[in-house]
Design a protein around this nucleic acid. Structure first.
Lengths: 287, 287
DNA sequence: TTGTAAGCGTTATCAT
DNA sequence: ATGATAACGCTTACAA
């Protein structure tokens, strides 16, 4: 029986997954669940299975680390995490092999998209269309990716000698369509604003576009919008969304391989980042 | 340590989940993953956690039942399953508490939408709009729900004295958008056909609509389409999709409660079906 | 009531 | 090599 095997040997053939650390995002989230799906397929090929880490074991509350030690998980994947959560910090500092497809911190191996490149793709595209004033809509900074993309924007704009006003930056109050809609209405109310925006998440972008339309604006004719992620639905949206495509399949795949390697050949943990390429896919929310 | 607890007591505080038994559907599928999410939240509240059942344990292949005995799971949820799979049959016949949000079979407790009612809602709606000829697009019969909805259609049409030709029934060759697109093109090629169709899955319906449009048909003006599921995206599709809404949150919730009750008060298993209400939500793919 | 020992199924160690 | 046995950490049953 497998619990006896785990008890007696050191290996559980199990990988813990931290998924909803920063928000109430569930399996139905197209971006994160796709990474998880890809990761899962790959680790299963190697004989491992995944377990969602919860802060409860039977009936008592546990820290992530205690939970993992209890379960004797062989490694853990952080699909998304809050770098300020003491639970996460403790886990990452421990000797348990850990990989993340989201956050970056000391002792943590990360496999993430090249956000700098993603934003650069956008800015170059906007510049190539003749824009001087280039806007951005971010999501909450509790997610590293939103923070990073905004930083990349600031750096790149400066570096390229483009000026931007703080009002050209809008931050949505959540991760979903509804919060995007509010942003769309807000942008529509601006008397003076950029005519192109990067919205650093497709699902927020959908909301922004509909919010804009609700106020009578046409996308892309009056305002152009570029999304970020390229989730399945983006191509079926109307108008089909121009977006920065993240390769979720590859992110999950590489994270799995990397983690398995760490488990099977343990070494000193250190901060290392693997960047997965992004590309811009031009559809119809830009002209 | 938890493996010691499992070994020594009979309880593992773990519920096995069978998810991809009939197709390669992953976490990113909006309908099933939402049921799973809701189920998961509810069982976690009671101190249980979920484990995805795979046919591999470490390195050896196992049947579902052997896997469950090995893991000593307290119960299992079948999110979707193939009733002809001997692995499923064996598991359901065993003494392990089992619940399904999909299939129906002896010794199995099922919590599913009222498909008969769902189809009736559609037919009544079509009739109320003056239609005599009423079509349907199904998905593969390996999924019980598709089969059942089509049966409901045949029964109800007969019962209501409406006639239908076998050519008014189209079955898609898969679960996705692409297979729907092919169906849309096919329907567009028909010289004689119904002017309204129920497509018994939203994601297939999206494909059908785009396939129709690709051949120059306007939805809803030339053909009206009703979907089934009401996934998140249906309201953001263009045109927003008229559809039969399934209450995935309630399905997952009730399945969780029911299974926990079976685990904590074991009784003889028997076939029982809990029907969860559906409703029609009228948007713009119908006039 | 509190404490002690047996046992869960597998692996790993240590004799033979 | 092959086989017996201790150890894994926790629960539970039984004794004091």
């Amino acid at each position: 029986m497998s619990s006896a095997r785990i008890l007696s040997s050191k290996k559980s053939w199990t990988i813990g997954v931290i998924y909803s650390d920063i928000s109430l995002i569930g399996f139905e989230h197209p971006f994160f669940s796709h990474i998880l799906q890809s990761f899962k397929s790959q680790v299963e090929r190697a004989g491992y299975e995944i377990v969602m880490i919860v802060s409860k074991l039977g009936n008592s509350e546990l820290t992530y680390l205690d939970w993992c030690r209890n379960k004797k998980v062989d490694g853990v994947l952080i699909v998304m995490g809050n770098i300020n959560n003491p639970n996460i910090i403790e886990l990452v500092q421990s000797d348990i092999p850990t990989i993340s497809t989201d956050i970056v911190m000391p002792n943590l191996y990360s496999v993430i998209s090249d956000d700098y490149k993603g934003v650069e793709l956008y800015i170059n595209y906007a510049v190539s269309k003749g824009y001087k004033r280039i806007g951005i809509v971010s999501g909450p900074f509790s997610a590293r990716s939103f923070y990073n993309r905004l930083e990349a924007y600031r750096n790149l704009m400066n570096q390229k000698g483009l000026t931007y006003a703080e009002t050209d930056i809008v931050v949505a109050d959540g991760f979903g369509y509804d919060e995007g809609f509010v942003v769309g209405e807000f942008i529509a109310s601006l008397k003076d604003r950029p005519d192109i925006y990067l919205v650093t998440s497709d699902v927020i972008a959908f909301g922004v576009i509909r919010g804009l339309e609700s106020k009578g604006f046409n996308v892309p004719n009056q305002i152009e919008i570029v999304g970020y992620d390229d989730i399945d639905f983006s191509k079926h949206f109307t108008p089909p969304l121009t977006t920065i495509k993240q390769d979720t399949a590859k992110i999950g795949f590489q994270a799995a391989n990397q983690l398995i390697q760490m488990i099977e050949n343990p070494t000193q943990k250190k901060q290392t980042i693997t960047h997965v390429p992004v590309e811009i896919v031009i559809r119809e929310t830009t002209k």
